Amino acid sequence: MFGYVVINEPELKIKDYREYRGVYCGLCQTLKRKYGPFGQLCLNNDMTFMALLHMSLYEDEEAGRERMYRCKLHPTRKQKIYDNPCLEYAADMTLVLSYYLARDHWMDDRKPEALLHMHLLRKKVRKLLKIYPRQFQAVRNYVYRLEAAERAGEKDLDVLAGLTGTMLGEIMNWKNDVWADMIRETGFYLGKFIYLMDAYEDLDKDIKKHRFNPLTVYKDQQDFEKKIFSMLDLMMADCARSFEKLPLHLDVEILRNILYAGVWSKYMKIRNDKNKTEEVRDESL
């Protein structure tokens, strides 16, 4: 589920890339401070995007502070990182989503590491339940409804992707304030995009392991790749339309880089990897 909402680094100005790294590394350090080194392992680009969006929307209310930090993984120079309530919220949501992602891996593959992951996160997640009941309920509803839809063999992509969209929209709706509808709508279409991208990337693996994937019935159609791109394009067009309604001023070019270029660089990488795999298969015949 994670890893699709990324920057397109070559298209970013150096100052914007450093700004993005400041938020990304700030989230990493917030996870470490609140949840220890294991919390850092849950770090992902998708929640970095959410933090960046909230920092832009609530720049006057949640300014927080900046500080210089020398990362152990990059010890040659210090870099600016952020510390603010937007990153606190992103860290908390990262943990909740990571717990349910581990649960999904356990249900799918019965991997012992996924069960261990759940065990390590369970107590921390229970505390967050009391702080964020609305968001927690949205994630829980999503998990159970998606499982039920998959067991029933639901084939309607709009229904399935909409479950992820509804959940992410509620997660991104931090304060449930005057901007709630626009944020929910942005998150809704972004969530639908993420669901379809995840299904697209995992399709061959899911077929091999006899796991549910709604794209299985479309795979052998002649215009399969064109259909996938068209659906993804429509979802991101709707997401961008909602995003542009928000009164954002800070780091808007970075956010646009992610929505207009970053997500597509990820799509192209997945598509190219699939093409290479197909070429290898053809050569082996």
Rank of each mutant, 00 (worst) to 15 (best):
G169L: 09
W174C: 00
T186F: 15
A199T: 02
M172A: 13
Y200A: 05
E201P: 02
I183F: 00
L163Y: 15
D202Q: 07
Y189C: 11
Y200E: 03
L163Q: 11
F188S: 03
G191W: 09
K205W: 06
D204L: 08
L196P: 01
M172K: 03
R184I: 07
G165W: 12
M197N: 02
G187Y: 04
D177T: 00
L160K: 07
V178L: 09
L160T: 00
D206H: 11
M197W: 03
G165P: 12
L203H: 09
L160P: 04
K205V: 11
D158W: 04
I183Q: 09
L157V: 03
E170F: 05
N173D: 15
K205S: 14
W179E: 07
K192Q: 15
Y200K: 01
D198Q: 02
R184Y: 14
D198F: 02
G187K: 02
V159I: 12
F193N: 01
V159C: 05
L163W: 08
W174T: 01
D181V: 07
D206K: 10
F188W: 12
G165A: 12
E185S: 13
T166Q: 13
L203V: 07
Y195P: 02
R184D: 10
D158F: 04
T164G: 14
L163T: 05
F193K: 05
R184F: 15
D198H: 02
I171L: 15
D204W: 05
K209M: 13
D177S: 00
D158K: 06
D177A: 00
K175D: 04
L203R: 07
G165M: 12
Y189D: 12
V178R: 06
N173P: 01
M167G: 08
L196W: 05
L160W: 00
T166P: 00
I194T: 00
E185D: 15
K205R: 14
E170P: 03
M182E: 15
D177R: 00
E185H: 13
V159M: 09
K192W: 05
W179A: 11
E201W: 03
D198A: 02
L203D: 05
W179K: 11
K175Y: 05
D204K: 10
G162P: 02
I171G: 01
T164S: 15
T164H: 13
M182D: 15
M197I: 05
N176T: 00
A161I: 04
G162K: 04
G191I: 11
D198K: 04
N176Q: 09
I183K: 12
N176C: 07
E201A: 13
L203A: 09
W179L: 15
T164I: 01
E201H: 08
Y195C: 06
D204T: 08
G165I: 10
G162A: 13
M167P: 06
A180M: 01
G187M: 12
D206S: 11
L203C: 08
K208F: 14
D204G: 13
W174N: 01
E185G: 08
F193D: 06
D202T: 06
M197A: 08
T166N: 11
N176H: 10
I194F: 04
D202F: 07
F193V: 04
K192G: 11
K209I: 05
N176E: 10
G191F: 06
Y189V: 10
